[in-house]
Design a protein around this nucleic acid. Structure first.
Lengths: 222, 222, 222, 222
DNA sequence: GATGAATGAGAGTTCATTCAT
DNA sequence: GATGAATGAACTCTCATTCAT
């Protein structure tokens, strides 16, 4: 008594990803049941296994694909930029824009790392490291060319990312400021933070974390 | 065949709270099993029910007690202060200090609100509102007395709290800056943000969230 | 998007039988999944249903065909033999030879009878009865003609079959004795057992089972 | 809404073992569901886990305890016997008696070895080896003292065990022969097989398996 | 206040089987 | 004759919770 109604064929995987994204965002990975997910998609829970191999793998794929996409689009955004200031501006603009439109992916990628099994965790953290490295390199180039001035590149990298990622905390579409205004504000904020002679108070605070701080936005792992 | 080993008598509840705090912080409320918790405490899972009534209630109590303690200590910190600037400085100093020493409670109170049942959720949100209200009143008084200048008190309240709470994201004990330095930096940052004539860039950004933003640090609820 | 690789057309059924035989022999009927079987054959599990109607029917067909082949070949082996002793020798030689070359079929036919549904079970047991009947008739003729001497034909039939079938327990190709030697040894053993004046000890033991013993090599059914 | 009816406390484990023994004997390990087992015991399937840790472990424990008991009782049966012939007689008598009264355990221990996970399989096979070793040592002593004459001790060990264990195939309580008669018959059979000057035909056949034959009564493993 | 054994629901996952393509 | 996606039932196992002892 096979397929009656429900979503067919190639569209199902996309529906699973979408519903999975939403449910994990709303309830958390552990609290989302595959029966719930399947119901959302309109299939039986067993049928999910035609598309995913385990629940864990679904989480992994969602997070991994998100970070890969982030990297891909970042590289496109940086393409052609030569001077460190241009690159940094492009980085900020891209990061902020992306985080405003992909709130769920970003949230999950930050908050559900602890739900990844060791092997998957390693892989994701490596990818995240690659993303951070892009920023670190921009800062390094800027410092080398005398355009930027930061006490510690590693620390500055984390601080800037924390600042930028922080907007997922409060941003909601339809707020008072336009996206463009938010992007512009962050560009100025970050640029002024690394430009020689910038306001010292804020810079000092942002530089605080010790270089070994890794688990931004979540508890220590294991 | 009663009690063999395990924690005895009156200390058990405290052990449950402590272990619960740690386990929820590390794995999340949904992913923590009461068997795990009981094992950590050194008793059988059934014995937990001599101390708590449900798992949900344990979460609720942990969060509620945390916020109550926050309120209690805040009021003590504000006690005797008259001028808005003194009050604000005291608020910032207290908030930052508290968040540095109670990372787990703070994290859970921010990230596990979605795990609360509606009734409990309402109660916690009300308590949180009371805490926010303290800050809003300080700002209001300052504006009324001409000492502060903010575009929108509500928005400024959220922005300041977001800024301050953000430090749980990166703070680790033993980092480069002393606690006092971090407190001082935040005091300056916030005070300069509400003092007439302060840097416009940053202030504008912090004012961004629309007044109806509620679920800071987590996804929308249900 | 049909057939990519995998076994083509008319050979597939044969591949299914072969793989099924091996998997049931190794893991047992209940423990073998059709996905496993399909993978072994190189097709999708759904495709099996172009060749078999149910998993149960596959087992049934394998067992039934085995016993039918056994009967067919037995009759060919007995063909032309007139005297009971010649018939019995031929029976033993055939049975032993066949069991040495078709270990899997024999094993399954003995051990998976309990996995057959009632209807199929009846049919197989009837076929098995026909095979046993051949031996019983030989013995009966021998007794009638005064060539054999057995206390009870029914019991002797079971005992001889148990003795002969027992070799699947220990026989492995490449062992110390040649097939011919093994056949010869069994011929002597059985013949001496039914010939008047044979060794009493062994015969008495072999005659032990009561006539209603049916489920040789397995537990009682249902 | 805890315990209503059903079997309580310390008797439950015994009931699980008993029911498990019966169900595995009748349907096979793979085909027995824990729901079935629980129903038989009169509890919910989840409650089984207060007594066993996994289904696999239940099988393992049943088989292991059976072989350990076998060993324990064997040693008691051999206790005090000095001469090889006495020991061998005692071995046969014990083995035959035990196999007649513990048909289920014996059957499972022979037929479900393939259902054991590698680690458990190793352990059981080691135990079985210890049992076989007892017989091998008796034969070895007999040969050394000139009382027995066997071509190959290893082969003789397997052959004798196969012969003795074979009675589980046809023995049913209430058959024509008394237990004592069956024991006596097997004693004679085995003793005559290892006594110098015994009938050559039968001995040769029983000696057939090559020394590396291991998986008696079942298919090769993996 | 603790244990140990129970419940009943539900978890993730696998199964045999069906059928439009 | 094969695929791939579906069903619905069943699987082993875990969960929060209860309660007689």
């Amino acid at each position: 008594m096979a397929r009656t109604i429900g979503s067919q064929g190639p569209k199902t995987m996309e529906a699973i990803r979408k519903a999975g994204l939403r449910l994990i965002f709303e309830h958390g990975y552990a609290a989302m049941s595959l029966r719930q997910l399947a119901a959302e998609v309109g299939i039986q829970s067993g049928s999910l296994y035609n598309h995913i191999s385990t629940k864990q793998e679904l989480l992994f794929v969602l997070v991994r694909d998100h970070i890969n996409e982030l990297l891909r689009q970042l590289d496109r955004a940086l393409d052609g930029k030569q001077r460190p200031a241009d690159k940094l501006r492009a980085f900020v603009a891209f990061h902020v824009s992306y985080h405003m439109t992909r709130k769920r992916e970003v949230f999950i990628a930050n908050s559900e790392l602890r739900s990844l099994e060791p092997k998957n965790y390693e892989e994701i953290v490596a990818l995240r490291g690659a993303y951070e490295q892009r920023l670190a390199e921009i800062l390094g180039q800027g410092v080398a060319e005398g355009e930027f001035e930061v006490v510690d590149i590693q620390v500055a990298t984390f601080a800037i990312l924390a600042l930028l990622t922080g907007l997922t905390t409060w941003y909601r579409p339809g707020g008072r400021l336009t996206k463009e205004a938010i992007v512009a504000a962050h560009e100025k904020l970050v640029l002024s933070g690394v430009t020689p002679g910038a306001k010292p108070d804020q810079a000092r605070v942002l530089r605080t974390p010790s270089p070994d701080v890794r688990a931004r936005g979540g508890p220590e792992r294991r």
